[in-house]
């Protein structure tokens, strides 16, 4: 039994979530093959070969895969899985990121199986746990599909080591450009701070921040803690910050060691995105705010006093 993990990358470096996905594959058990499909990613495949637990790296180098467009990538994956008889793989895994969620349903449809989305725990090779109803319930599901197509929520699994492994690299005949889609461009938010979903510390601001300029307060504190900055939907909808900072049911799901919620009341949709954090600190002037019901440490007070004071205290 072999497991195919689709690596997420930018042709230069692997995305952190890939390591969590490999960890999930290890729990399922079996040979783990990592598919690196990209353009000019020979060096990347060598990095990928170092990932602990991976036995083989499949390298598909073709301009068609440069941006991992699902129209081109999904047929390649389907061909790898079902090109031989019996099927070469029992499981296909990818991280439940916007890239994984873009590609994998297309793969599942080509294979004519049901996809199992956002698993947080592996119970056995065919039984998994996944959150439903915005994380308010955990469903244990069993799949009888011949090939299990699974997206993995990265916060549910501890990442494997990015080095120490020694997988063989096998170049595979690259696919073709389906010609129905093309990459035009992208605008990536540049940030010196760690990525939201991978950060050890996350500081989020809500409607209580009042305007976008006040987020500077959080950035100053974040720089001292080496933290990422997030926001609640209220803050994003009000235009304080770009929407890739949104933490919650429809935004990013985070599970840092320390989560500091500043001026966030704690709507259930926001809690769904951060309640797996290890320690939660809430700073809010409304002591009735629901955020205090999940916070390990709550501070009732004006954030415009508390945040600078906190930054000062951490410095000293």
């Amino acid at each position: 039994m072999a497991i195919l993990v689709i690596a997420e990358h930018n042709n230069v470096a692997l995305a952190a979530a890939t390591l969590n996905t490999v960890a999930a594959a290890q729990q399922i058990g079996g040979d783990i093959h990592l598919l690196v499909a990209g353009n000019g990613c020979g060096a990347l495949s060598e990095t990928a070969a170092q990932v602990a637990g991976v036995s083989k790296v499949l390298l598909a180098d073709n301009a068609a895969f440069a941006h991992q467009l699902p129209e081109n990538l999904a047929p390649l994956v389907a061909e790898l899985v079902c090109g031989t008889s019996p099927a070469a793989y029992s499981h296909v895994l990818a991280a439940a990121t916007t890239t994984g969620k873009n590609v994998l349903p297309r793969v599942a449809a080509l294979l004519d199986v049901d996809q199992i989305s956002e698993i947080v725990k592996v119970e056995s090779p065919d039984t998994f746990q996944r959150p439903i109803y915005a994380g308010n319930a955990i469903a244990t599901v069993q799949s009888s599909a011949s090939v299990k197509v699974i997206t993995v929520r990265s916060t549910g699994f501890d990442a494997v080591a990015g080095e120490g492994g020694s997988a063989v690299i096998e170049a595979i005949a690259a696919g073709t450009d389906a010609g129905i889609s093309a990459f035009v461009g992208e605008e990536l938010a540049k940030s010196e701070r760690p990525e939201l979903t991978a950060a050890k510390v996350v500081i989020s601001g809500g409607r209580g921040m009042q305007n976008g300029d006040n987020f500077q307060l959080l950035y100053q504190l974040a720089d001292k803690l080496g933290a990422a900055v997030g926001a609640s939907r209220a803050a994003v909808d009000a235009g304080f910050v770009p929407n890739d900072l949104q933490v919650g049911q429809t935004g990013k799901i985070v599970a840092p060691q320390l989560y500091i919620a500043v001026g966030i009341s704690g709507a259930i949709q926001h809690l769904a995105g951060m309640k797996d954090s290890k320690v939660i600190v809430a700073i809010n002037k409304d002591e009735e705010a629901p955020i205090f019901q999940v916070a390990d440490y709550g501070l009732v007070g004006d954030l415009f006093d508390a945040v600078p004071e906190l930054a000062g205290a951490i410095n000293g």
């Binding site: 469903a139 599901v141 390990d296």
Partner: peptide, 17 residues
């Protein structure tokens, strides 16, 4: 896909102020 069981996630209890 068959749902075997559905359970409530581990609840967080309120901490201290």
């Amino acid at each position: 896909v068959k749902i075997l069981k559905v359970e409530a996630p581990a609840a967080r209890s309120a901490g201290i102020k």
